Amino acid sequence: MTVRQIRLFGDPVLRSPCAPIDQIDDGVRALVRDLVETVELPGRAGVAAPQIGVGLRAFSYNVDGRIGYVLNPVLVDVSGEPELIGEGCLSVPGLWHEVLRHPHATVTGIDLDGDEVTLTGDGVLAQALQHETDHLDGTLYIDRLDPATRRIAMREIRESGWF
């Protein structure tokens, strides 16, 4: 059980689609513990497995005092008119840009017992569900920016002290 270091933009694991979890074993249980402990730090709404260097479909969330995880999540529903909403990412630190996100989202997956889980949310939770499932498909929020804003973001990344 460990708070894991976050992988940063440029790390290939962030651009690779994640493999489904076929078997729940001690390694997957340890991954979930690490994801939950890593998301518990202040200011974190979600952490996807590739952000801690693991190419498996899993993420944790921490929104409005609710902390949890989903294995093999699939974004099954988004609804409402997409809205521009301020968003950042632990893997692209220091950047904050407006991204189009739906105000309502639903993810299905499983828990550590293999039981089906459905997680539905509005507002920040809906945003986190969309953001984290994007990570599992190898997509970063900066990929969703309009072209002009994306150019600005890429310049900010190149000029950052961490890149």
Rank of each mutant, 00 (worst) to 15 (best):
E40I: 13
L41S: 13
L8P: 05
E81L: 14
P82Q: 09
I67S: 07
L14W: 01
G68M: 08
A48I: 06
L84T: 03
D34N: 14
V124F: 15
P50R: 05
D26V: 09
E87Q: 14
G80M: 11
G86L: 13
R57K: 15
N62I: 04
V32G: 09
R29M: 04
G55T: 09
V99P: 10
A58V: 02
I67G: 05
E83P: 06
L100F: 15
H104P: 11
V107A: 10
A19G: 11
A126R: 00
A58H: 05
S91F: 00
G55A: 14
A30I: 12
G114Y: 00
L8Q: 06
A49P: 03
S16Q: 15
S91E: 00
T38F: 10
A49H: 08
P50M: 11
T120W: 08
L41P: 06
L75A: 04
I24A: 05
S91I: 01
D11V: 04
G109W: 04
S91P: 04
R66H: 13
V47W: 06
P73R: 08
V92I: 10
G53E: 03
V124P: 07
E87W: 09
P73K: 09
E81H: 13
D113K: 15
L95M: 03
G86T: 10
R15P: 07
D77E: 15
A30K: 11
D64K: 10
P93C: 02
C89F: 00
N72C: 02
G114N: 01
G121C: 02
R33G: 08
P93H: 01
G65V: 02
G121T: 02
D77A: 15
R15S: 10
G123I: 12
N62H: 10
D122I: 00
P82W: 08
H104F: 14
A128G: 12
G55I: 06
T38L: 06
A58K: 05
E81P: 14
V74S: 12
S60D: 12
L84K: 07
H102I: 07
D115H: 15
A30E: 13
V107M: 03
P12W: 01
L119G: 04
E37A: 08
P93G: 02
P82T: 11
E116M: 12
V76Y: 03
E37T: 02
P20S: 15
V99A: 10
G121N: 06
L95W: 09
L75G: 01
I24V: 08
A45C: 13
G88K: 05
V74F: 10
D26E: 11
V124H: 14
T106P: 09
S60V: 10
P93L: 05
D26C: 07
P42L: 01
V78D: 06
P73S: 03
V76N: 07
P93E: 01
L90Q: 00
V78W: 01
Y61G: 04
L56D: 04
E87D: 13
G123W: 03
D111F: 13
T118S: 12
H104Y: 14
G43W: 07
P103M: 02
L100V: 05
E87Y: 11
G27S: 14
L8N: 07
P103S: 11
D115P: 15
T38S: 14
V28T: 02
R101A: 06
E87P: 14
G94T: 06
A48S: 05
P103F: 05
T38D: 08
H104R: 15
